[in-house]
Design a protein around this nucleic acid. Structure first.
Lengths: 113, 113
DNA sequence: AAAGATACCTTGCGATACAAGGTATCTTGT
DNA sequence: ACAAGATACCTTGTATCGCAAGGTATCTTT
């Protein structure tokens, strides 16, 4: 999957997953890996950013099958941000599709050759 | 408009515009600026890349209202690449929307708190 | 005790969009 | 004739982000 296309969408995707249920980074990777792929080297800095923006809060939960998990929970702030991102995403996609459909006004001018 | 979202889509957009008619960088900026925005600092390095990949060829045309224009023309190669990009874009969008719709398989496991 | 899965994390790199700045050409207003 | 502005080209440096590679610790299984 093309790396560049993901830029700016992964945080939205993570927030969307967290909107359904709290989760931890390692699990987020495996959840998102069905379809998109995202690697651990991506998720940890990303989660740090989401936390810095106060879009998620964290709590530790001991696991019965490994080390403790750092769960992330969407904040009210994060929920609002997710809606904003959704809107921006839809507008963006609409505009790209518009261009792909031959959109940006043909601009009446001579096209040589 | 969010900068990150554009990453990887602008070359496709430019190729799509060129699929309709040859154009030059300055005009491409103003065409795409209706809807997306894209700046000159973006377009020139981008056009260089497209040319390096042999997706476009160039020819000079004297203008009646300013300096000569460097027109870009989609090559056969570029036309094929555009189709590939379109496919990848559609797949990508489909997957993101899938995640946004609550997609990545709920994964039967306890979600604490 | 060793091996493997789970779970966390950091460092350095590559790609790309952009602001800011620079040059040259041509037209228009004064 | 000269200044100003639009047209058209371009480069440099910065910020962001995704990722491969590597590292640590815990817990279970062999």
């Amino acid at each position: 999957m093309k790396t560049q296309l993901k830029k700016g969408t992964l945080d939205m995707c993570v927030l969307a997953v967290l909107a359904q249920a709290d989760s931890y980074a390692y699990e987020l990777v495996s959840k998102l890996s069905q379809g998109m792929d995202i690697s651990e080297g991506t998720i940890y800095p990303l989660m740090r950013r989401l936390q810095n923006e106060l879009w998620v809060s964290t709590y530790l939960v001991e696991s019965s099958s490994g080390p403790s998990r750092k769960y992330y929970k969407l904040t009210d702030n994060g929920r609002r941000e997710l809606e904003t991102m959704r809107r921006e995403w839809q507008e963006f996609v609409a505009e790209v599709e518009n261009v792909l459909r031959g959109g940006p006004a043909a601009m009446t001018e001579e096209a040589p050759q």
